[in-house]
Design a protein around this nucleic acid. Structure first.
Length: 884
RNA sequence: GGAUGAUUAGCUCAGUUGGUUAGAGCGUUGCAUUCACAUUGCAAAGGCCACUGGUUCGAAUCCAGUAUCAUCCACCA
């Protein structure tokens, strides 16, 4: 074994270590079984990686996801579980297509799709997707992710396509997928539909116009979108509104509205109309508003589509308007209304504009023929694995989605997101799954004349034409937990690893993805996709702002890895975080963990200098001294706590415990003691082994590097067994030594005694005499004392400064005459504080209610405290008396 | 409009079923550099636990309300 370098240089080791891991095959559970790392019948533990979009590069959010999942996976692998972490990427239909279009347009191709045609355009997208994929894979490896690359999947590859077609036709046959002419969210730039949750709202100020359809029209209405009024077929008023009651049911004709077509406006009643908003009368545009559409259906009103898929006015808007953009049409309508004296008021109001979540273009609601998944329709349930629902029960998809979370078959961490999930489902409408874009799974529906065919495979006969639309990207990612495991084939992987153990992802995609996975899986398999959902927060900058290019506050994981190492970057995303809460990140934070990584390296370095022949399978030693027993006991204790907290997905706390142990207890105390006591090869060897194992899931690189430096290149920490749990009482006698040393140091610092200077001390130790005598050299060494006298009782020597600690009185020679007045002030202050504390304790114990109600243990504890405080007070008072 | 979260040291956050004289890291201040590590050590300063009530022998912790900030959902034409 060679000596470790003075400082840890991540760059020297990381890539090599990753390559070794990969070459070993241990990322693959089958290899683990083959090579005896885990038993054949071991408990499976599986996570599918939330597939990053192939739209570019990884960001800190991905880094957080990879770090968290790798901790879980590495822990379970070491624990001996048959552990699979399955990687993949998402084709992200609209997002990717939009990105490629943009790139091509920047290259000077004005209308890429028109100029290239479907085939060539898709080839461009594929090329881009492949590039992004390669980048993402490399970056994931940089993060140290122990993903099984053999099983890598892509949401748009052939196997996944088969799974998609299979689920689609199954759903169609169960009549849960249907085609309908409905109002959909239309993005005129993407030229595609969007699902309800793909619509975002942008707050803005809008012009609110109040006008009459015609001079003799009895009701005045208001709108922010005058151009849509060309398609109005009704006015809705509240049935209780006295102003308008008389008109309900009547129909009014408007000639040549705003210079356009004639309108027929029926006055209808609807309780949804707010009497106090605007004029209390609402112009109904059935074709271009979801709410209006519903009213139109209820009241049997005509639906006039006046805006087309390009965002331009149709012929139905009138020949004056046809071909105009929405914006142009609005201007023209307004001008017309003003010119004809019908405009009554224009004012600015705050308004939520709906925009496309991918490109920010305002959404145009319009009626269109699309494919939907019916979420409220009953079907016969065929699965067996949903608690409370039996084979043959009539259920809806919504009920399935609710049931599995309600009955805790799926547990969401943190649980407050269950409420969010429930409320979303309760408001869920049928899911529009068809998209008018080219990049994606083509809908497995074929038409011939007026016939329609839906199947997994294309019809063999000539003449069938496939539906040109593709599927919402979430349709394919919704089946991700099982499509990745080979379904619909009956694979061993599917049998072994499904349902998966946990889905770990950001809370921002709970609706987009988590909910849809639950929907698709409970339907298709009659089973849950995962047992737990762990939601992490968004990674933000140090001020809590979203990271964005325009703000210039983006922290790039690769840059941080380059600068501080992967382990430091991982720790910064793991520690000091809580589930579901946002993670504030700064370079300083990562630098801090870089320091810790180096500390661990140097701790190991020091320990190894004291272990002549390190052994990797060393049993827990007993320990001879107080310090030995203390550190070994602590190590056992935190091993258990860390394990329990990892099991409970409380890995941040695990890591913090381990850091505090490593830096505080081990480095700052025990190793310093070891320098004095010496002869600790066995204990140091044992602690080092355990420490590296415990840290490995969090800091795989530095721990693996040390392990292999020590035990040789053929050893691999990654698959070493997790430490066994032992419950042992920690003798706290060493705490007394610690406290006395700390107090000596504090008094020295107060009296400005240089650390290097050795001074004399005496201790009046009472009952602690034996303990202190045993640890005399430690107190001397760590307290920098040249002479230490421990007696049962000792009188304060002249010009010594005294203090009371852990039942002992310590006197220090502070070298020179002490300022008696200053000492008095100090002592008096401490006496006062102690008295106050004593009073509060007495008050508590004199309170009959407290003694009667509080548990005996608590009362006992308070009594002990009081005794100790009384003793301390006496000693302090004595010191004051003897000071002169 | 509805919901959720946050509010603890200058900053970032712990505080696990109510029982500590309220903790950590960073930052600040002082001292220290042959002895594993200056990517370090030792020590110090720094807090009416947002506010107001309530429950309790006992509240940072439980309940109600208020305020500020953040996020999500719905959406008014």
């Amino acid at each position: 074994m060679r000596e470790l370098a003075k400082a840890y240089e991540p760059k020297q080791f990381e890539d090599n270590v990753y390559k070794k891991w990969e070459d070993s095959g241990f990322f693959n559970p089958d290899v683990c079984v083959q090579k005896g790392v885990c038993k054949k019948n071991a408990k499976p533990y599986s996570i599918v990686l939330p597939p990053p979009n192939v739209t570019g590069t990884l960001h800190m959010g991905h880094a957080a996801m990879l770090a968290i999942e790798d901790v879980l996976v590495r822990y379970h692998r070491m624990k001996g579980d048959k552990t699979l972490w399955l990687p993949g990427t998402d084709h992200a239909a609209i997002a990717t297509q939009t990105k490629v279009e943009k790139i091509l347009m920047e290259k000077g191709i004005k209308e890429p799709k028109v100029e290239l045609g479907r085939e060539k355009f898709l080839a461009e997208v594929d090329r881009f997707a492949q590039q992004s994929h390669d980048t993402i894979v490399n970056q994931s490896k940089k993060m140290g992710s122990s993903l099984d690359w053999n099983r890598e999947a892509f949401t748009l590859d052939e196997k996944r396509n088969l799974a998609v077609r299979t689920v689609f036709s199954k759903m169609y046959k169960d009549k849960l997928i249907y085609r309908g002419y409905r109002i959909v969210n239309w993005c005129p730039r993407c030229k595609s539909t969007l699902a309800d949750d793909e619509v975002e709202y942008k707050e803005q100020s809008a012009k609110f116009y109040t006008f009459k359809y015609s001079a003799d029209f009895p009701i005045v209405i208001s709108t922010t979108r005058p151009e849509t009024k060309l398609g109005d077929t009704a006015i809705a008023v509240n049935p209780d509104d006295d102003r308008y009651k008389q008109y309900i049911g009547q129909t009014f004709e408007v000639k040549n509205f705003a210079g356009g077509n004639d309108l027929k406006i029926k006055i209808i009643a609807d309780t949804a109309v707010d009497m106090s908003f605007g004029t209390g009368a609402l112009g109904v545009t059935p074709a271009h508003s979801k709410v209006d559409y519903d009213m139109a259906i209820k009241n049997d009103l005509p639906i006039i589509k006046i805006i087309d898929e390009d965002g331009k006015m149709t012929a139905q808007a009138g020949k004056e308007y046809v071909g105009l953009t929405v914006k142009e049409a609005r201007k023209k309508v307004v001008e017309n209304l003003i010119a004809s004296g019908l405009m009554i008021e224009e004012k600015d109001i705050p308004n939520n504009l709906s925009v496309c979540y991918r490109c920010g273009t305002p959404i145009e609601p319009l009626p269109s023929n699309q494919w939907f998944v019916a979420v409220n329709k009953k079907f016969k349930f065929k699965g067996k694995n949903i608690k409370g629902i039996n084979v043959g029960d009539e259920v809806t998809l919504k009920e399935l989605m609710l049931k599995v979370v309600e009955n805790k078959q799926i547990e969401i961490i943190p649980d407050r997101f269950e409420k969010v999930y429930f409320s979303w489902i309760n408001n869920l409408n049928d899911w529009c799954i068809s998209r008018q874009i080219w990049y994606g799974h083509r809908i497995p529906v074929w038409y011939k004349d007026k016939k329609i065919k839906v199947d997994v495979e294309a019809p063999k006969e000539e003449g069938w034409v496939q539906d040109p639309d593709s599927l919402d990207t979430w349709f394919s990612s919704g089946i991700w937990t099982f499509s990745t495991l080979g379904w619909p084939e009956k694979t061993a992987d599917f049998k072994n690893f499904h349902p998966t153990s946990v889905l770990e992802t950001g809370y921002d995609i709970i609706f987009f993805w988590v909910a849809r996975m639950i929907l698709m899986t409970t339907y298709a398999l009659g089973d849950i996709p995962f047992e737990k959902v762990y939601l992490h927060g968004m990674v933000r900058d140090d001020q809590g702002r979203k990271m964005s290019k325009s703000l210039g506050n983006v922290i790039d994981p690769l840059v941080m890895i380059e600068k501080f190492g992967t382990d430091a970057t991982r720790l910064s995303l793991l520690l000091g975080t809580t589930p579901g809460n946002d993670i504030k990140l700064s370079e300083e934070k990562i630098a801090g963990f870089r320091n810790f990584t180096n500390k661990l390296w140097n701790i190991s370095r020091f320990m190894l200098l004291n272990v002549p022949e390190p052994k990797k399978d060393i049993k827990a030693p007993k320990g001879k001294t107080e310090a030995d027993k203390w550190i070994l006991g602590k190590l056992d204790k935190i091993t258990t706590e860390i394990t329990v907290n990892l099991e409970n997905y409380n890995f941040a706390y695990s890591g913090e415990l381990l850091r505090d142990f490593t830096w505080g207890d081990l480095a700052d105390w025990y190793l310093e003691v070891a320098k004095i006591e010496g002869d600790k090869a066995e204990i140091l060897n044992y602690i080092l082994n355990t420490l590296l194992k415990l840290w490995h899931p969090f800091m795989p690189y530095v721990t693996e590097t040390i392990w292999q430096e020590v035990y040789g290149e053929n050893e691999m920490l990654m698959v070493v067994s997790w430490p066994k749990l032992k419950i042992k009482e920690i003798p706290n006698s060493f705490e007394t030594i610690k406290n006395i040393v700390s107090s000596i140091r504090a008094v020295r610092a107060e009296n400005k005694i240089e650390p290097a200077k050795k001074i004399k001390a005496v201790i009046s130790a009472g009952e602690q005499k034996k303990l202190l005598s045993k640890n005399l050299e430690i107190i001397k060494g760590l307290g920098r004392l040249e002479e230490l006298n421990v007696k049962n009782t000792i009188k304060k020597p002249k010009n010594y400064v005294g203090f009371v600690e852990s039942g002992t009185e310590v006197y220090l020679d502070v070298m020179g005459d002490i300022d008696v007045e200053k000492e008095k002030v100090r002592l008096n202050k401490e006496i006062e504080e102690t008295e106050n504390y004593l009073v509060s304790l007495q008050r508590k114990l004199n309170n009959a209610d407290f003694v009667a109600h509080a548990p005996a243990v608590v009362v006992e504890k308070e009594k002990t405290k009081m005794q100790e405080t009384e003793e301390k007070l006496n000693k302090l008072k004595n010191q004051l008396k003897n000071i002169v």
